[in-house]
Design a protein around this nucleic acid. Structure first.
Lengths: 159, 159
DNA sequence: GTATATGCAAAGAATTTGCACTATG
DNA sequence: CATAGTGCAAATTCTTTGCATATAC
């Protein structure tokens, strides 16, 4: 859709980022459905539209976006960094079965909390882990859940 | 101290773990001062006492401990997994300058929250990030803080 | 046109795995 | 003794880096 692409470019310009084709595509993807993707997900997904897109570009672009506040990296998945296209502070639920990350809409300490115990708090992350309701209900949406780094699944080597 | 070592062995036995020498040493270290160590920290620290201790053993032992509930892995440091020797639920502060992890003593959603939005919550992690009060006061305790994975420092390759 | 972005290939680090050796009960 | 734990070495994956090419303004 032209509108999404243009919307992304506008957003990039507004953040002081030169709106290249790749950046617009990437921003669009991080903000789109299938939220909270990992670099690998983005790479696999976008390769269809942009066959030359490299992981190098994904890494550098997402770092740039994070630096400019357009996306937030999440360290909730023990296997890899996931990216949140919604910059407004909110909490997250990580399903240890299907590995999806879902937004949690509770207000507890969500904002910049200022100071705690004398420490200057710049970020607050509420990470909830367990089984999402879809997996509880039968898990037909489940992806492979190879267990590895303790208590949490991790993608197994493709050995 | 013999008592700490014995205390660790007792703790291992109580958790149904065969109390080997290495395991006692490792448990002692995770629970001791310099809390929330990474595998690398433990390896460097323990090599003095147990020169043959391998990272393989550290990985497998800590996974075992986590499975038995003796320690909790923390994914707050973007660079590596850190381990908490205190299994009771509590929150954490990560200093982006000195990379220390400090316990945060607030009650917000600390316990097993049961259900949220229909999801079964098994774990709750409150991760606060910013500058600790020591670093704010001058940072003489600071370790090297090589920036990498966006907004948070990561140990640089030893290139 | 010139600075910046992109992408390929290779390096670097954390983590996992296979197998031989060793210590525990 | 027999089982289970330990450790070395190699493999795997994520992430970073160097440099040559291509693109945006």
């Amino acid at each position: 859709m032209i509108s999404n692409r243009d919307e992304s470019k506008r957003r990039l310009t507004a953040s002081g980022i030169k709106p290249t084709f790749q950046r617009a595509v990437i921003l669009e993807a991080v903000r789109g459905k299938n939220g909270h993707p990992a670099i690998r997900d983005l790479h696999a997904r976008l390769l269809r539209d942009v066959p030359t897109l490299s992981k190098t570009t994904l890494y550098s672009t997402l770092e740039l976006f994070a630096r400019k506040g357009l996306v937030k990296p999440l360290f909730i998945d023990p296997a890899e960094v996931r990216y949140d296209g919604v910059a407004e502070p909110h909490h997250h639920f990580y399903c240890t079965a299907c590995r999806r990350i879902l937004d949690i809409d509770i207000a507890c300490s969500t904002g910049r909390a200022g100071r705690i115990h004398g420490h200057q708090v710049d970020e607050v992350h509420g990470y909830f882990k367990g089984l999402c309701r879809d997996c509880l209900a039968g898990g037909r949406l489940s992806r492979a859940a190879n267990v590895s780094i303790h208590n949490s699944p991790r993608r197994k080597p493709h050995a």
